[in-house]
Design a protein around this nucleic acid. Structure first.
Lengths: 193, 193, 193, 193
DNA sequence: GATGAATGAGAATTCATTCAT
DNA sequence: TATGAATGAATTCTCATTCAT
């Protein structure tokens, strides 16, 4: 299962598009094969089964996603700057791949246990990035210590998630990234006077 | 049809459980019928099709959910108190019906357009409750006016959603409601010093 | 199963219409019940099952049909006149009940053996009427004796049947009865010079 | 798809038999698949749906049927001879494929509109053959000009149809073809002295 | 490796019939 | 008699997966 071979990539890219357009359950393997210009059977040389396609798509895409985010953050100094960068990268990358946004926001919310387990494994490393920023903030004495850091992370991720979902649901009609600073402000300072 | 007839309720309750256990797509109509102690065909006397079951379950349950929330909030004075009550009610009610929590957190994220449209209609009235609290806060001069109220709502809902999802994913091993005040504090004041 | 009770008639009449409109297989018992203004279950007080409705409709209607034909023929003297009357009655009666025409021409051609057996039993007495005309014609020395009388009957009935079917298929757009004399001429004299 | 592939033929032949034995409505797709020695799903690689099987069977078989008839007729000179040949071919071919006879005589009288439309399209080209014979007869001054040619055609087809139906209903106990000349005589000269 | 025809398990839905009221 | 809610057997069609070429 050499992942460098062109067919593997073709299938992954085709799968993202087909799933974004039709949803996971309405995405027949034959449809993905057609869009990828390979035979149905070929899919099974690269993926164990249909579920494996979804997981692989997510791992693959989310891997790049995280890598880029980590890299961008590493260029910033303070936790505050890093958080802003994190938010910006989140919005920027999903804006650039609306297909991916649809897949992550809607299609990955499957409750099939095995599927979720795999998805969460990948998601966890993304959440770890947030955790590390919070940790640094605590060390820098910038973040309040009387709050459960897990809750902070859940607020950050939940807010990003919801804003992206809203954006996807509204057919991506406005520039997501424009919200980054306001969201950053909102998260760090709250909305009460 | 007549929503008071016992079979209707039986089917709704059975559907919630079966969907929570298996996910919507793995929930065969025959499984729901069996759990509801009715014949397969009986389901179709009360629901147009399988999708209609999901929508009806959601409308039915979310309706009660919202009603209770609205009632609880109406007994509070200030926007701040109301928000806390909102959070508490959200956690309390989902804690009491973990099946429902699973259905709402995971199964409703379907991307099938007609399905989403119906779901969003119901969800909207829940989001309206948040909006009305924010509006009151602005009138009471308690909420900062330089922030997009929609973003505030997205942060509130996103945070609640994510904290519940985390709780569901961790098999509901801790009392959700205990987080209410801390989350309220976090949302209103942010986490930065 | 008193056939004089009003519900029996209501159901028969409703059945003729529903079957003519939808075809036998698409005619749900519940549809017939609705049109007859009775409950589904009531049907089964008067008919053994759905098939029995079809057969009863046919017997009932065809019975009248034959009675009227026999009566009309009995008023004529010669075989030749009787045949013309037969043709006229056939066309006249089916013209007056287009529903019945549709049912007899299309819906009764079911090949389900038990069904056909019953239908043929009724049809036979109609064919007997033709046979008796032919017999009289032979006795009157008006009909050629070197032809198999059965074939003659098949030609007569086949021709009537086909002309009615054509008329039904063309949505009954012309007056069927106008053809009677020409068909009579054609049958008795053939079309060759 | 490719009509030369053996499975296509297998399914067509199996369908003719199964439909002849059970009637269209009682012919489950699975029964046809079994008799054709293919999997149920394979049927759907070659046919759009169950209805498509019936139409295809008819087109396929009737196509050959008509071709042979046309060929046989073209070898005859006069309209009179051609008509005799037409009758002979009709009887001969249906005698040789009693299954087909049953299907055409009984099963194709479906009133489902889309189905009939397709069937009539094919049937029409058969009726056209009769029409062309009549036309030639008129040109040769052999057929009476004061009769509606459409009626002549209806008499010819109706008579053939009815004689075949009778033969089918009587379980094909006599040689159909023996009647050809008598029927020809009957049609052209009528039965009156 | 690549193909794509073939497979067949699986699932939603319909509707004739029953039977408690 | 009459009702109509409830039943559940029956059937079409889909689509992930296999495997001979």
């Amino acid at each position: 299962m050499n992942k460098d071979r062109p067919k593997y990539r073709q299938i992954i890219e085709a799968a993202v598009e087909v799933i974004a357009e039709n949803g996971y359950h309405a995405s027949q393997v034959s449809k993905i094969a057609k869009k990828a210009n390979v035979a149905d059977g070929t899919i099974y040389l690269y993926f164990k089964n249909k579920e494996d396609i979804l997981i692989s798509v997510f791992k693959e895409k989310m891997g790049h996603f995280i890598d880029k985010t980590v890299k961008a953050i590493s260029e910033k100094e303070t936790a505050k700057e890093k958080l802003l960068t994190f938010i910006q990268m989140h919005y920027k990358q999903l804006s650039e791949s609306p297909y991916l946004a649809i897949v992550t926001q809607l299609e990955l919310r499957q409750s099939k246990p095995e599927l979720r387990a795999e998805i969460n494994k990948v998601l966890k490393s993304y959440l770890n990035v947030i955790d590390s920023i919070i940790k640094q903030g605590l060390e820098e004495n910038d973040i309040q210590t009387d709050i459960n850091p897990q809750l902070i992370r859940q607020m950050i991720f939940g807010t990003l998630d919801e804003t992206v979902t809203t954006w996807v649901m509204k057919s991506q009609r406005y520039p997501l990234i424009d919200q980054a600073e306001e969201v950053h402000q909102l998260l760090t300072k709250g909305f009460f006077k």
